[in-house]
Amino acid sequence: MEAKISSLISAADNGDGPASEALFAALYSELHRVAKRELARRGDFVSLSVTTLLHEAYLDMAGRSVAAFPDRARFMGYAARVMRGLIIDHARNRRAMKRGGRFEITSLATEVAENLADEKELTQVSEALDKLAKIEAPLAAIVDLKFFCGFSFSEIAAMQGVSERTVQRKWERARLYLHRVIRADLSC
């Protein structure tokens, strides 16, 4: 999967649509696999942090790939996007969840939920993010990384090789854009 993903990342970087789709599918399966493995390993009461999951997945793939693997920044950008989808789907499913509720959502959902009550609003953010991605993709990536995945400014800065202040500025602009778009959608 690693060589496949690494070549898909290159293709997706160059704007190859089907490659992007294939990439997301591959990343999804990979993240899913790593998550299941980690969860099985840790027992059923310990929960897994998103950032840990992403790091594990990256190390796993980079490690298995004997050839050069894309740098973490690019990987994380795409993986964070996939994580966004996973999280929203999770919120969606939670309402319909009939499974035994041994796994309670803890802080991610509460943190997200502190400000956005339900999956509907998350979806709004996501759609707005998609719009933002078309206009200024790096901003959307930062929101994926920070808001959905929980990376800190310094981590994102280190990942992207820029200063923390740069990341913060971009974050503020992204927030502004999203806020506007969401309010506009609500009122129109």
Partner: peptide, 15 residues
């Protein structure tokens, strides 16, 4: 990063 557990997010059931 790996050594540090961040805020505990839980995607167990969904995943």
């Amino acid at each position: 990063q790996l050594s540090r557990a961040e805020a505990i997010n839980d995607l167990n059931s969904f995943l």
